[in-house]
Each structure stands twice: as structure tokens, then as C-alpha cells.
């Protein structure tokens, strides 16, 4: 648990989109089709993590550095990782202070509306690298 709190993360790719609605945050994985509603201090934790802060920095800034709250933060980070929303980076932690009002246990609800539709109705898209290229006969790939 303590290791998780000391790691530095970023959103795991450009397919991870997040929107703050004020009373809740939504994180969408546009690749998998899963949407997540984030409650409690979850939005603050997410914002701190994608800004390069560690879970421990957040815990300290929010007064949640007791054993119970710290475990809640570590559990939430582990959940974000297991859903493929966060990826560990080798960057040093952001040394700036974390701006946060307080702490409420974070939680996450998962919606699979889009994922369910994509499973029965796949859409094949060109790779992010660009448009398809049909090789002319005899042309070298170089």
C-alpha cells in the first residue's frame, strides 16, 4: 500500500478523458467504452495524480495521512490502475503544493453502456498513426 502512495502517475493514454461536473467527475476510457463516475475526494485525488503529485502528497495536503484514510487513497489508486486509467511514470513527483479542501472517502461507479454496444458492433478505425496506405505493387516498404 505504501508503495502505491509514493508512485507518480499520468493518465494512461489519450483515450482517457475526464470531465468535472462540479458535484462529480466522469472519467471515460474511449478505447474500452467504460465510463466512471468519481465521488468523494476521488476527483481531487485524480487531479492531483494527473498533475504529477503522489498519493502521499495528496494525503498530507488533505489531512488524510492517518492509517485509515491513507489506505482508502491507496485502494482508490489501485482501482484506477486496475481499470487501466492510470499508468506509472518515471518522472519525479511534482514539488508544488497540492491544492485540496479536505478528504472524503473516494468511490467509483462504472458504466458499461458503450462497452456493451461496441462488443456486439465493433467499429474498425484507422490507427492513430494516420490513414491506411495500400502498398503499390513492387513498392519497397523502406
Amino acid at each position: 500500500m505504501s508503495d502505491t502512495l509514493d508512485l507518480v502517475f499520468s493518465a494512461s493514454g489519450p483515450e482517457i478523458i475526464f470531465e468535472n461536473f462540479g458535484d462529480e467527475m466522469v472519467i471515460a476510457n474511449l478505447e474500452s467504452g467504460f465510463f466512471y463516475s468519481i465521488d468523494g475526494s476521488g476527483a481531487d485525488i485524480w487531479n492531483a495524480l494527473v498533475a504529477g503529485h503522489t498519493g502521499r502528497q495528496f494525503a498530507s495536503a488533505s489531512g488524510a495521512d492517518g492509517e485509515g484514510p491513507a489506505a482508502e487513497i491507496a485502494r482508490f489508486i489501485a482501482e484506477l490502475r486496475s481499470e487501466g486509467l492510470l499508468a506509472e511514470t518515471a518522472s519525479p513527483a511534482n514539488p508544488d503544493p497540492v491544492s485540496v479542501a479536505g478528504f472524503a472517502p473516494p468511490s467509483m461507479q462504472k458504466f458499461d453502456d458503450l462497452q456493451g454496444l461496441l462488443l456486439v458492433d465493433p467499429i474498425h478505425e484507422a490507427s492513430p498513426a494516420g490513414w491506411p496506405f495500400v502498398q503499390a505493387p513492387g513498392e519497397s516498404r523502406g
Binding site: 466522469v26 458504466f111 458503450l114 454496444l117 461496441l118
Partner: peptide, 14 residues
Amino acid sequence: RSRVLAAMAANTFI
């Protein structure tokens, strides 16, 4: 709003 967004996005994207 997350519930509504997930449902509307699903149908729109498909």
C-alpha cells in the same frame, strides 16, 4: 450527469 453522459455517449458513438 455521469449516468446520462454514459447512456447518451454510447448511442451517439455507435
